[in-house]
């Protein structure tokens, strides 16, 4: 009825009308050239995403990283655990020896830094993806139930979230991990997920609360739809976007958390190969041989950057209003 007062005040996206003269009475014609092809909101988001250079930068990086994590053998023939002391301690990088074992030089124990960087990718990616999946499933479920049912469910969940939120993430995971003598990848994943689910739960809770108040949810209830249908057909698809964004961005954060913990000696430990462990090992040699730290740290930053950039691009694509 009235023009929107915000923004441009345009009625965009409405179909052009070239109604033929058949319509009297209801004033309508079947021949309105309707809107173009079916365009779902997810489709629109994908369209937005496709047109962002940053998305492609991060996507290419991530595909590369995932391939490295899955098939490290494709990228180097050297054995990352093979310490050959004849390789001289801390040989400097030979930057022209592309993809050779001595490309990035050797570390304190005479191991190929290039091989270690390649093999270390798997641990980081596994921790990042593993924590994100667990956190999204658990936090998402808890947040959804709290948001949808409200009342005492919400009261309990919200208090629980508050308590967990009060624990410092890193300090908390250090305390938890300290209780384990053998710290495999899954232990680190479990420890980080145990402390990390609250963010997703909060985000999910609030977007579910918004979505459940929408008119289309009332319409479904008026039709007699059951809770399951309302939750999974109407509420969840409309509440998912913020969770996806937060999950993607925090994936990077979990990777750096793992590296931090490993650096402090509380995360992964030898014989697992991890950038964090290598950074830790390099700290004594940094003065004379900065390359020992530079390469694992660089890879870590690159990975975290790739995930955060992807999260940013996804957020912009899902919600054009935030731009």
């Amino acid at each position: 009825m009235s023009e929107p007062t915000t923004g441009t005040g345009l009625a965009l996206g409405g179909p052009a009308s070239h109604a033929d003269a058949a319509a009297v009475g209801t004033g309508l014609s079947k021949k309105d050239t309707g809107p173009g092809k079916p365009r779902s909101l997810w489709g629109d988001a994908w369209y937005e995403l496709r047109h962002r250079p940053l998305f492609w930068v991060s996507a290419v990086l991530l595909v590369l990283l995932l391939t490295i994590a899955a098939f490290p053998g494709l990228f180097t023939g050297a054995d990352p655990r093979d310490g050959d002391l004849t390789n001289h301690f801390l040989t400097k990088p030979e930057l022209t020896h592309f993809f050779q074992a001595d490309w990035f030089g050797y570390d304190v124990q005479g191991r190929s830094i290039y091989a270690r960087v390649i093999y270390g990718t798997r641990a980081s990616i596994m921790v990042g993806v593993g924590v994100t999946v667990m956190v999204t499933l658990f936090g998402g479920l808890v947040g959804m139930l709290a948001g949808y049912f409200g009342g005492w469910v919400d009261a309990i969940v919200s208090r629980l979230v508050d308590i967990f939120f009060g624990l410092p993430f890193l300090l908390g995971s250090m305390v938890v991990l300290n209780a384990f003598t053998e710290r495999k990848v899954y232990v680190v994943i479990a420890a980080l997920a145990f402390l990390g689910w609250t963010t997703i739960a909060r985000v999910m809770r609030s977007s579910v609360i918004t979505a459940k108040q929408a008119d289309y949810v009332t319409a479904a209830r008026a039709l007699g739809a059951g809770t399951t249908r309302i939750l999974f057909r109407h509420v969840l698809p409309n509440a998912l976007a913020p969770t996806i964004v937060v999950a993607t961005i925090s994936l990077g954060a979990y990777i750096s958390a793992e590296a931090t913990l490993s650096y402090l000696g509380l995360g992964l430990a030898d014989p697992t190969i991890s950038w964090g462990i290598d950074i830790s090992a390099a700290k004594d040699a940094i003065r004379d041989n900065p390359h020992v730290m530079l390469f694992p740290a660089g890879m870590l930053s690159l990975t975290v950057f790739a995930f955060i950039t992807l999260g940013d691009a996804v957020r912009d694509a899902l919600d054009p209003k935030l731009r």
Binding site: L12, S17, A23, G27, D32
Partner: peptide, 16 residues
Amino acid sequence: ELYAIKGLPPNLLKVP
């Protein structure tokens, strides 16, 4: 019955 203008308000991207 009310008189009704048929069709839809104009789309500014495709003004006839």
